[in-house]
């Protein structure tokens, strides 16, 4: 397997005459967790949506597991690169139906639901509950279990804990960290929670105004910011709007 999970080469994305991203070059190693921080509207979510081809880069190339995204068969790419959204989508039916949803889309054999639920720290007895009745944190974890059931190599996490209370946030976060330790998943994790970025990341990317302004270890980014944009972003506690 390629040691590079993701490689971005001078990536830009334009829509409606507006460049949401420009000149982004970076790489993520297999098993690495990258936290992406930056002001609202900076292009963070757009950036990760290019990696599983939910959007197509307007310029540049994105290599995923040794192949350019547009050269991948789309269905296979999206099975290998799982994505979890900020607001969890719950389909009608039980927790079991939801967890196995992706596998059924691909007519893949079902997996042990109890094991998948355990993976996201949910009790096995929830399997037959109506998924709609779960709490916000539980729904987030069901959506995560649904993505994990596909056994992706790379996880794209788009503010997955943003809508959760402090307790649920820490639960989902510790679940993800355990998955990283035990399964060695590569993760690109968009978050506006700077403490979370500090806790989870091997490397932090600071994106602002559609550019990858700075990247480094959490210590470098949070203790020795080089750019003025990052300094003022950190001074505002990450609440700056671009």
């Amino acid at each position: 397997m390629a040691s590079r999970a993701v490689e971005l080469k001078n990536v830009g994305f334009e829509t409606g005459g507006l460049w949401l991203l420009r000149g982004v070059s970076a790489e993520v190693d297999v098993g690495q967790t990258v936290a992406i921080i930056g002001p609202s509207g900076a292009g963070k979510s757009t950036l990760i949506s290019l990696i599983n081809l939910m959007r197509t880069p307007t310029e540049g190339e994105i290599w995923v597991l040794g192949q350019e995204v547009r050269a991948w068969p789309v269905r296979e790419l999206r099975q290998r690169v799982g994505m979890v959204f900020q607001s969890p989508v719950i389909f009608p039916g039980s927790v079991r139906d939801n967890v196995l949803f992706g596998l059924e889309l691909h007519r893949r054999p079902p997996r042990d639901v109890a094991e998948l639920l355990q993976m996201v720290d949910l009790p096995a007895h929830l399997a037959d509950h109506a998924a709609e009745d779960l709490s916000g944190g539980q729904k987030s974890r069901v959506a995560l279990a649904r993505t994990l059931a596909m056994e992706p190599d790379i996880l794209l996490l788009d503010e997955v804990t943003a809508a959760l209370d402090v307790h649920a946030k820490r639960e989902v976060e510790s679940t993800l960290l355990r998955l990283k330790r035990e399964l060695g998943k590569t993760m690109l994790w968009v978050t506006h929670d700077l403490d979370q970025a500090r806790r989870v990341a091997d490397e932090v990317w600071f994106v602002a105004g559609g550019r990858l302004v700075e990247r480094g270890t959490p210590a470098e980014i949070f203790n020795e910011p080089r750019s003025e944009a990052l300094r003022s972003f950190l001074a505002e506690g990450g609440e700056v709007r671009s």
Binding site: N52, M54, V74, R75, E76, L77, R78, Q79, G82, M83, F85, S87, V89, F91, F101, G102, L105, H106, A143, R146, T147, M150
Partner: peptide, 16 residues
């Protein structure tokens, strides 16, 4: 839109 995006992100086809 959210459900459609979620299915596409799981590798589902537009038809699915």
């Amino acid at each position: 839109r959210n459900e459609i995006m979620a299915i596409l992100a799981l590798g589902g086809t537009p038809r699915q």
